[in-house]
């Protein structure tokens, strides 16, 4: 039981740091791009806003589905936690790293669609409803390329466990062996964590979309949940493509943290530089471009794994 407790503790610390880091990074890049001077306020603005939201009264609409509305942010956070639990943060810290890690991660990312749909549907208000249905279209199109790209990472490891995938990258990282893998992964994961240019359910043209009717602690829980999903996605990207804890000199956990940080910076940077995409056009792009590309990536890495045998 002790190693479960240690694993859960490590997961909790990783999530807390990740969420705080995402809020700092977002404000830092935003100030950088907006041309403001950089102040230390970047570090305190996030926690202060969270405390302010805790003092605000949670709002309700005329006839919401109250239970589902309260359950959605909690489910989103739990799925982020489950996604991160599949990734062993260090060789000696596997928590739920069973033999089918990437299938569990895929299931967690698929259930994110359920959390966002419930969050939009339960408000019984038009713009959250449109945001919820938009995200279902997006998530349905992005589940497939995400799973395919992780499968292509699993081919050389001959196992679906994330620890094995990391160990299989001892000599060369997957980002070099499978060049198509990381870009497709970043696009689909930014879509499923609805961050950056793929921020469709909470877009500005729906004046906040699924969180237009949310205030107080529920809004704080929603944004924390969303950051947890992003941290889990970045950590899986680091594990599957950038060699996880492999790296000279520094201990494993530090490498894992650095690589996750690099991917987080990439996604948050894209959020402030790339315009939001149009839903219909990007669904077509996902089906017609991303899935065939992901399949090509699977067969290329399969052929490479055969040749290397």
């Amino acid at each position: 039981m002790t190693d479960v407790a240690a694993g859960v503790l490590a997961l909790g610390v990783a999530l807390f740091l990740g969420v705080y880091l995402v809020s700092v990074l977002d404000r830092f890049v935003s100030d950088l791009v907006a041309g403001h001077g950089l102040t230390a306020n970047v570090f305190w603005a996030g926690p202060r806003r969270a405390v302010l939201l805790l003092l605000q009264q949670p709002s309700r609409t005329e006839r919401p589905d109250a239970e589902a509305w309260a359950f959605a942010p909690a489910l989103l956070g739990a799925l982020g936690a489950l996604g991160l639990a599949t990734i062993p943060l260090a060789p000696e810290l596997p928590l739920a790293d069973n033999a089918d890690g990437i299938v569990l991660f895929g299931a967690a990312m698929a259930l994110v669609m359920v959390a966002v749909f419930l969050h939009g549907w339960s408000a019984n208000s038009v713009f959250p409803l449109i945001g919820a249905y938009r995200f279902v279209a997006l998530a349905l199109s992005y589940e497939m390329p995400l799973a395919l790209v992780l499968i292509s990472a699993a081919l050389p490891a001959e196992s679906l466990s994330v620890g094995e995938i990391i160990r299989s990258q001892t000599d060369v990282w997957n980002v070099i062996r499978q060049p198509l893998g990381l870009p497709i992964y970043m696009v689909t994961v930014a879509g499923l964590a609805f961050w950056g240019p793929l921020r469709l359910p909470d877009a500005a043209d729906l004046s906040g979309g699924t969180r237009a009717e949310v205030s107080g602690p529920a809004l704080a829980a929603w944004e924390v949940g969303r950051s947890m999903v992003l941290v889990a996605a970045a950590a899986m990207g680091a594990a599957a493509f950038l060699g996880g804890w492999l790296g000279p000199w520094l201990p494993g956990v530090v490498w894992m943290g650095l690589k996750t940080l690099v991917l987080l910076v990439l996604i948050v940077w894209s959020g402030h530089h790339l315009a939001r995409v149009r839903t219909e056009r990007f669904v077509v792009v996902a089906w017609v471009v991303l899935i065939p590309l992901a399949l090509i990536d699977v067969f290329l890495s399969g052929w490479l794994a055969l040749a290397a045998r």
């Binding site: 890049v29 935003s30 100030d31 950088l32 791009v33 907006a34 041309g35 403001h36 240019p197 921020r199 877009a203 500005a204 043209d205 959020g271 402030h272 530089h273 315009a275 939001r276």
Partner: peptide, 15 residues
């Protein structure tokens, strides 16, 4: 730019 979710770039244009 703000309607396209680029709030930071929109602040730069406004400045």
């Amino acid at each position: 730019l703000h309607a396209l979710d680029l709030s930071a770039l929109s602040i730069r244009a406004l400045a």
